[in-house]
Amino acid sequence: MLRLASARTGGLVALAAIVAALPLFFPNNFYYDVAIKTALNAIVCIGLNLLIGYAGQISLGHAGFFALGGYASAILTARYGWPGLLAMLAGAVGVGLLAFAIARPVLRLRGHYLAMATLGLGIIVAIIINREIAITGGPDGMTVPRLWVGGWRVSGAVAWYWVAAGALLLAVWLSLNLIDSTLGRALRALHGSEIAAQTAGIDTTRYKVLVFVISAVFASLAGSLFAHAEGYVTPIEAGFLRSIEFVTMVVLGGMASTFGAVAGAAILTALPQLLTVFQDYKHLVLGAILIGVMIFMPNGLVPSVALSLRRLRPPVPAS
């Protein structure tokens, strides 16, 4: 257990080092932009991974929470003049309460029925954002003012990179700690067999609700940061395809692996940029890559790579 924990700390340190060193390889601001989007997607995926990978509950509606966070920030700062951080906090609290309110009836459902319910909730959010033009700007979206932290106006790709990177490291650290806490152990028990976990005296519903709320809040905060970083937000962020994209990132990177979620987000955010090389064939290639990875690494990239590395290494006596 102790070794496991230290390995995780090592992972966090390694991630921090990568994040710190990356800008050295960035020739211009465009790379920062992709990195910022990666970090913010990764935060959503880290939260979603707690739900999918650890609690074994799927959600096809997290883009709804992401967009709600983004629009809360956009609307409260642009239309009501709230300070950015307060708006972000209000969005997170609002989304948390919403998630809490719907969690119980939703999480009673299992498997694909749960997928359907979360998908429906996400789509409802998307439709409402699309229709309430007076408040949200409708399908064309709305401009979001710059974020002020104290007296500092966060603007420019470099500044945003450090903000997003800091938020990402914080999210990873939180996630690793959650996994090692009572909550994490309860969740793993629940993933194995919910009834067995109940028999062992774990209040499974409470934990499921808790992790659902946590993952929704992660998504909301990432959405708020995204809205400010882009300076613009559209209802596409709430869409069904965006939700699918988040889940795909989690599964591709590796379920039940926080770093897997980060890797999945990084790959699927950067891939469309690399695939422009293939012009008309880019969707074909993207589909083939997804299928290929899932066939040959059914547990996702990070766990599969970690496993084969362990196999390569000579066995270490257990400490």
Binding site: V247, T248, Y281, L286, G287, L290, I291, M294, N299
Partner: peptide, 19 residues
């Protein structure tokens, strides 16, 4: 593979066929 992995494969297939 788990059911979720199979779902992602079918999502990949849908992108591929559409492409």
């Amino acid at each position: 593979a788990s059911v979720v992995t199979l779902i992602i494969i079918t999502i990949g297939a849908s992108i591929f066929i559409r492409g």
